[in-house]
């Protein structure tokens, strides 16, 4: 089995890897690069746990091939905090108790970051609509949505 050489940028780092064509970006991140913060919940694009940003666009990394990352900019949950300083979204998720088990949390945070970059002042309805592809089975979404709106307010104030 021949592998393809891919050069890409992940969380600002130049990264090279070898992958098979039918390997998803999710598998490359988790298995090849050991960036296991990105989670697999379904591998069919229905749960959002594997959300990453690809050239500034929110995607499910299970629905992207590893070979497609050539020359792209990828951001994962591991790149959201600034060193040990949490991003306001991360901080607000903690303050609002917006996680129970935490498996969906990386995907929600990456998606929320994409939302707030596009729409810094979403309504509750806009936030719910934008995040409808991120499944959470523990929280009933209440505290997540509160954390998102709280983070948006904080970031608008901080900007």
């Amino acid at each position: 089995m021949s592998k393809t050489h891919v050069t890409t940028t992940i969380n600002g780092d130049a990264v090279e890897y070898l992958c098979e064509v039918d390997q998803s970006l999710l598998d490359v991140l988790r298995d090849t690069l050991e960036l296991t913060g990105t989670k697999e919940g379904c591998a069919t694009g229905d749960c959002g746990a594997c959300s990453v940003s690809l050239d500034g666009r929110l995607v499910c990394s299970c629905l992207v091939l590893g070979v497609e990352a050539e020359g792209k900019q990828i951001e994962t949950i591991e790149g959201v905090a600034n060193g040990t300083e949490l991003h306001p979204i991360q901080q607000k998720f903690l303050e609002n108790a917006a996680l129970q088990c935490g498996i969906c949390t990386p995907g929600f945070i990456v998606a929320t970051k994409a939302l707030l970059e596009k729409n810094p002042d979403p309504t509750e309805e806009e936030a719910r609509y934008y995040l409808a592809g991120n499944l959470c089975r523990c929280t009933g979404y209440d505290k997540i949505i509160r954390a998102v709106l709280d983070a948006a307010a904080e970031m608008r104030g901080a900007a």
Partner: peptide, 9 residues
């Protein structure tokens, strides 16, 4: 079609 994530693709 699909979620925000799917919309990106």
């Amino acid at each position: 079609i699909g979620s925000t994530q799917v919309q990106g693709r």
